[in-house]
Structures are given as structure tokens and as C-alpha cells.
């Protein structure tokens, strides 16, 4: 049997640094998109302006066209979200996604479907290319597009403008639920009155 630690009850060493960040433990949740909890969001994944322009074009081909919400400003928001995601991935996965965007843009040429790049194709032609890749039996190629599509559409369907169109209004709902729980916790009688579903 190996040696194991005995409990010590003395205080922690003075060397322990004082936290610089203020932890807002008691702050009421305002459900902001960027909550002020002292956490720093990473800078977007670095990209040249030229690459960003190509990325915008690909994002536009993947996202729903009008009458669904779409504008230059929304494209920029999606681009920033995608570049944000990339910073939190394993560095190799982030670089892989960067490369995947390039490959997807060149896919029409690589698949001999068009001499133009994906971002330069009209929507119908781009749809055909994307659909062909997502239905291929060659797994790595399929996953490449599925990964890109997932990150772009996840960012698109998280936009407030899109939430509004889907009749998805989480902030008032969550505020109402937080208030309801506070009332339940403050009043044990009320809590008891909410019969348990399984009993």
C-alpha cells in the first residue's frame, strides 16, 4: 500500500496570489449575449482580408437566402463567430477548418464541376456542389463540409434577428423562469404545492 497524504488544517501559504478578477457571484443575470463575468473572449482567428472575403462568400452560399434574414452586417457577425469558435478548437483542428474553407471554395474545380470557385458560383450551382460533397461516400470529404456547415449554420441560427423570425425569444422566458424559481425557493409552501410528477 502506498503512502498517502495526512490531512493538514493549517492555512494556505501566503504565497497564494490574490485573484485579480472580480467574480460576480451574486450579480443578477441580464442574459446578455456577452455576459460581464470577467471572462475574456478570445481574439478572432487571424485571417487576411482576402481570405475573409472568400469566407464571406462561402458563408453566404451556406446560409439561407432572403426572405430569411441576411445582410452584410449579419455575414460579418457570422464570420466573427466562426473565427471565435476556431480559437477554442485544438490548434490543429482550428488550422484544419481554415484549410477546409479553402478546399470547399476550390471544390467546384477539384470536382470538375465548374472552373469558378464556390463563392463565385450562383446559389443553385453552389447548392449542387455542396449537396454532392455532403452525399459522397468518401467520409473525410463529407466530414469536411459537414463541419463547416455546422459551424456556419450554428452561428447563423444563433443571431438575434433569426431568433425573432423563429419566434424563439429566450430572454423574456428565462427571466420569467428565474423569477418563478426565486418565488418557489422563497416559499416552501408554494414549492410543496407543485406536485411531483412521478409521485
Amino acid at each position: 500500500m502506498s503512502q498517502s497524504p495526512r490531512p493538514r488544517r493549517e492555512a494556505l501559504p501566503d504565497a497564494l496570489p490574490t485573484p485579480k478578477r472580480q467574480l460576480p457571484m451574486q450579480r443578477t443575470n441580464d442574459f446578455a449575449r456577452h455576459p460581464k463575468d470577467g471572462w475574456t473572449y478570445a481574439d478572432p482567428y487571424p485571417m487576411s482580408d482576402r481570405y475573409r472575403a472568400r469566407l464571406h462568400a462561402i458563408i453566404e452560399r451556406l446560409c439561407p437566402p432572403p426572405p430569411a434574414p441576411m445582410s452584410g452586417d449579419l455575414l460579418t457577425q457570422i464570420e466573427l463567430h466562426v473565427r471565435g469558435f476556431m480559437m477554442y478548437m485544438h490548434p490543429l483542428a482550428g488550422r484544419g477548418l481554415w484549410l477546409a474553407f479553402i478546399l470547399l471554395d476550390w471544390a467546384p474545380r477539384l470536382l470538375f464541376m465548374s472552373w469558378r470557385r464556390l463563392g463565385d458560383l450562383d446559389r443553385q450551382a453552389a447548392d449542387r456542389v455542396i449537396s454532392r460533397i455532403t452525399s459522397t461516400r468518401w467520409m473525410p470529404l463529407r466530414l469536411l463540409v459537414v463541419g463547416i456547415r455546422g459551424s456556419v449554420l450554428s452561428a447563423y441560427f444563433d443571431l438575434s434577428e433569426v431568433h425573432e423570425r423563429l419566434n424563439y425569444r429566450p430572454v423574456p422566458f428565462l427571466k420569467e423562469r428565474v423569477a418563478l424559481r426565486e418565488r418557489l425557493v422563497a416559499s416552501p409552501a408554494l414549492l410543496g404545492a407543485t406536485a411531483l410528477a412521478a409521485e
Partner: peptide, 15 residues
């Protein structure tokens, strides 16, 4: 991330 920071926004919460 304390309870008071949680929201329904995927793009902020997932990272």
C-alpha cells in the same frame, strides 16, 4: 462561469 452568466446564446456559451 457562475450561474448568473449563463444564457441561451450558442455562439457565446459553446466556447
Amino acid at each position: 462561469h457562475p450561474t448568473s452568466s449563463f444564457s441561451a446564446y450558442t455562439t457565446e456559451s459553446v466556447p
